[in-house]
């Protein structure tokens, strides 16, 4: 797994209080990991803070799974 994917996982574990083993790339934040609308806003904000980027709202709306978050971040962040 990429460095970015590892960091994304760590944020999800911390913010959603789920076990790392429950997280797969295809996991949906709301359907599989128990996030509500406020949790998803917080996750996006933590991605912004951690990777020092700004995620526009129209992009954020398309990030609904772990995999979507990882590929978006990989396209935006220089490791």
């Amino acid at each position: 797994m990429s460095n970015i994917a590892e960091k994304v996982k760590a944020i999800i574990v911390d913010k959603l209080g789920v076990d790392e083993s429950e997280i797969a790339l295809e996991s949906s934040f709301t359907n599989d990991l128990g996030a509500d609308s406020l949790d998803t806003v917080e996750l996006i904000m933590e991605f912004e803070k951690t990777f020092d980027i700004s995620i526009p709202d129209e992009q954020a709306e398309n990030i609904t799974t772990v995999g979507e978050a990882v590929s978006y971040l990989e396209s935006q962040v220089k490791e």
């Binding site: 406020l38 917080e42 904000m45 912004e48």
Partner: peptide, 11 residues
């Protein structure tokens, strides 16, 4: 630099 307020701040 960016205003980043936690969505849980108010509740």
């Amino acid at each position: 630099d960016q205003p980043r307020y936690n969505p849980f701040m108010i509740p």
